[in-house]
Design a protein around this nucleic acid. Structure first.
Lengths: 364, 364
DNA sequence: TGCGCGGCAGAAAAGGTTTTCCGTTGCATC
DNA sequence: GATGCAACGGAAAACCTTTTCTGCCGCGCA
């Protein structure tokens, strides 16, 4: 037993495998085998080593392990989402997938600062991460991450990239919007408007397209002049209501590009004495609980399943790490309709109307 | 030049210092010195090595460096904040402080899952992080992080802990509430209510105390029956308005424990035809932009300076790492009043009233 | 010419772990 | 009693970088 360990309670330096070997009176190789269940050792030796390790509070130096294995069992997540609204659920999903196989996930933020992003990438590559996942605000396609000539697995999750060969996971905006359209149609709404964000977002265009398809499928007239694009704010929701009620007072439903817009719309409608959902039904997008649940009435909305998206990104990353496969291409993950009160799914009159409008379907 | 590098464009394995040495025709020691500006080398040799390194896309293996230096130049941030509302600004502040000195920060989330928290800690310790910062939702004091017998620097930032010897950074809730109270008092409000969250949160108690002190200092009667505690939701704001207007219809200002509560209150007041700020002024807490700026009128509120709090946590962590000092004790960081429209600071009548109420002070 | 010294680069150790390859011991079998 | 074998544990290499120590070479000075 070394002098260092006469008082092993609180050590300045963590104890090493050599310390354990000395205390247990065996060689370092034996310690390694005992602790990892390898090789053929007497049970006696094994427990001897184990108790020594425990006594010394030994924890293998991950740095040394990784150096040897040429892998760090770590995946980096680079985010440009400054609120965490989207990246935290994603991170948790990724952790769910990777923690199980002993890979840890670390988030670094690069809030739109390209220099910092480069620094993060450089740092992650130097740390020999097994892979990098990029996420961030979804305007239109971001420039691809500059990995130098390195060959680490790279996935874009909830982020679009201007590189068709990249692996990319996105929510199925089109399908999500279709869910919203179908839901409204089945509730008997026929004069439906769409109030959404800036059209330079691909998501905006996708959602509009999906919504249009749903209406056409349900034989509802698609009127381009019922589509209003603006920004993502509540204020825009207010303004849109003003415009809508002025120019087309016959609207009976509004599908919104985000929950924030939807909230602005619901508030503005209420102030004008328009009842939601009786007079106008509203569907949001995002299922941002803090907004959607606090709206009065609470918002029916589309959930992008970010947690599941993260899980899938983790799984895909795992395959890339293990196979060395490239897994390129865009995958769209399904969205989910979350029914609350803002379109009166349980409102008898509309339920009947829905049943009438869609033969073969019964009201819930 | 090794066979491995006949096609150096895309390497399965990152090149090592040996590869560079071989290509440059020097020894590994020389490469290290050339690249790090150490030792005495001819300028010629230095640039020879540098160009070789560049050609091979060489990036020193951080694992090996850390192994040697017995430090990882990494700090872990463990968060239990499942929305990221608080931890992302904090993370960015910490990054600001530490990135400058070459330390990277990684966030891992442990959304109230004690097992996962332990796993994260274990993983961070194995990776020999230089320090750990804990953050998370601020109910009352959380149990201290179990570090085993390890001795890594540990800081709680925006998280309270039931260990008086721990290093702990918190916003000055008391001072923040005092700012709110003083602001309202100076605007001439005298019958001020306080609607806040669950009293089991220490922050709730602190804010109440600070608010009380401000009123007493301004010679405004402190009425315990004007304090209403509930939960953190908008719905509670609505309910509180109902109660307030029923029992004490003479209230002329409300200080809220959070922006969500404030928003519920402002909405409810507007619906009842009570004008904000003319009839009742409202101050929130948190400066959660997405809520505060979207409220009508936009909320005057208290900002906890989380970014700065993070920066300070980073600096303090740096001191602990460098000195090996313990830095125990709670430090409170000042809050900041953000004036928007909800208490009419720029409303002439109240500005005059404020000037009258507080002699020696001029209206803005 | 010989000595010393400055300038420069290489050799080697250290850092902690895993794994492969060997060596030793004890036992059984012929 | 010699051979073989199984069981067990040790030695050493490998992972990659940094740093210290050492050695070589050429030049200046005595």
């Amino acid at each position: 037993m070394s002098a260092k360990h006469h008082q092993p309670m609180l050590c300045r330096w963590p104890s090493t495998i050599w310390d354990v070997a000395r205390v247990a009176g065996v060689s370092v190789g034996t310690v390694s085998k005992a602790l990892n269940g390898r090789g053929q050792l007497r049970e006696e030796t094994r427990s001897l080593v184990q108790s020594a390790a425990e006594r010394l509070n030994f924890r293998p130096n991950n740095l040394a392990q990784c150096l040897l294995r040429k892998r760090s069992f770590t995946v980096g997540l680079i985010s440009t989402d400054s609120h965490g609204r989207f990246s935290i659920p994603l991170l948790q999903g990724i952790e769910d997938a990777l923690e199980a196989v002993g890979i840890s996930v670390f988030l670094c933020t690069a809030a739109d600062d390209l220099a910092r992003e480069r620094q993060h990438v450089s740092s992650l590559l130097a740390k020999r991460v097994d892979g990098i996942i990029v996420t961030g605000r979804r305007t239109d396609r971001r420039p691809p991450l500059d990995l130098g000539r390195s060959r680490v697995p790279l996935i874009y999750a909830f982020a679009q990239v201007a590189d068709p060969t990249a692996a990319c996971l996105l929510p199925d905006d089109l399908g999500g919007a279709r869910l919203a359209g179908e839901h409204l149609a089945r509730l008997g709404r026929t004069r439906i408007a769409h109030v959404t964000g800036p059209p330079r977002f691909e998501a905006v265009r996708q959602r509009q397209k999906g919504f249009r398809r749903a209406l056409e499928k349900e034989a509802i007239a698609w009127r381009p002049d019922r589509v209003l694009t603006g920004n993502w704010s509540e204020a825009w929701g207010h303004e849109a209501v003003e415009r809508l009620l002025r120019s087309r007072p016959t609207v009976d439903a509004i599908f919104c590009g985000s929950d924030q817009i939807a909230r602005g719309i619901v508030d503005a409608l209420r102030e004008r004495g328009v009842r939601v959902p009786e007079d106008i039904a509203v569907v949001g997008f995002d299922n941002w609980e803090i907004i959607a649940a606090a709206t009065r009435p609470p918002l029916t909305t589309i959930d992008m399943n970010l947690h599941e998206l993260g899980r899938q990104a983790g799984c895909r990353m795992l395959r890339m790490i293990n196979d060395g496969s490239t897994q390129s291409g865009v995958v769209r993950m399904p969205c989910r309709l979350v029914v609350r009160r803002s379109c009166g799914a349980s409102f008898a009159g509309f339920a009947q109307a829905a049943a009438a409008a869609v033969p073969g379907r019964t009201a819930p």
